[in-house]
Simulated assay, not measured.
Amino acid sequence: MLRTLKDLFDSIAAPQKDPGDREHSLQLATAVLLVEVMRADEGFGESEREAVLHALRQTFPLAEDEGERLVELAHEHARSSSDFHQFTSVLNERLETEEKIRIVEYMWRVAYADGHLGAHENHIMARIASLLHVTHGEYIAAKMKAKGEPLSPL
C-alpha cells in the first residue's frame, strides 16, 4: 500500500507520459483541492470527509479502497504544499470549463457538509475558483446548486 501511495504521490511531480500517470495526477490534484476545503474548517468531521469521497467517486471510477488512499495522499500533499497553483494548473490543462465548474460545485458541497460555512472556507473557495478560471457567475451558480437553491433565470 505504501508503494502505491508513493507512486501516486510521485505522479503529480513527474512528467506525464503514460495515460495512467496523467489520470492519477488529475485525481490527486482534484482530491487535494477538495481536501483543502475540508481542512479550511476548524475541526473538520466525518461529514466533510464523506463529501470528499463522494465527489471523488462521482468524478473518477475509483474502487472503495482507492478513494480512501487518494484522500490520505491528498491530506499529506495538502499539508506539505504552500500554494494551489500546482494542482489548479493540472486541472486547467486537462479539464473543460464545465468540468472545472463541477469540481467547484463539489468543493461547495464539502464546505456545506457540516451545515456551516466558515470565512476561511469561503476565502479558499474563491481563491481556487479564480485559479481555475471559473467566472464569478459560474462560481455563484455552483454555490447555489450545491446549496440546493434554485438558480434564478438570467
Rank of each mutant, 00 (worst) to 15 (best):
T30Q: 01
K17P: 02
P61R: 02
H123Q: 14
I103G: 01
T135E: 11
E36K: 15
T30C: 04
I101M: 09
P61G: 03
L28E: 04
H75K: 12
S47N: 12
A13G: 09
E76M: 13
S11K: 03
P15R: 09
V110Q: 02
P61E: 05
I12K: 01
E64K: 00
G67A: 04
F87V: 01
M38S: 09
E99A: 14
H116S: 15
S89V: 12
A111N: 03
E50N: 15
A113Y: 02
E149S: 10
L151G: 05
D10Y: 06
L26D: 02
L131P: 00
K147T: 10
D7V: 07
M1P: 11
I124Y: 11
A14C: 00
R102K: 12
P61Y: 00
R79K: 14
R109P: 06
S80C: 04
A40W: 09
F44V: 07
D83H: 08
L91Q: 00
D83S: 14
K145Y: 06
Y139V: 09
V71Q: 03
I101L: 10
E23N: 07
A78C: 07
L34T: 10
I140N: 10
Q58W: 03
I128D: 02
V35H: 05
M1I: 10
E99N: 12
A119P: 10
H120A: 14
L91I: 00
N92G: 07
G115K: 06
L28N: 00
R127H: 13
A14K: 13
R127E: 13
A78P: 04
E98Q: 14
V104L: 09
E64M: 00
I140G: 08
A111C: 06
R127K: 13
Y112W: 11
F44S: 12
R39S: 10
I124W: 11
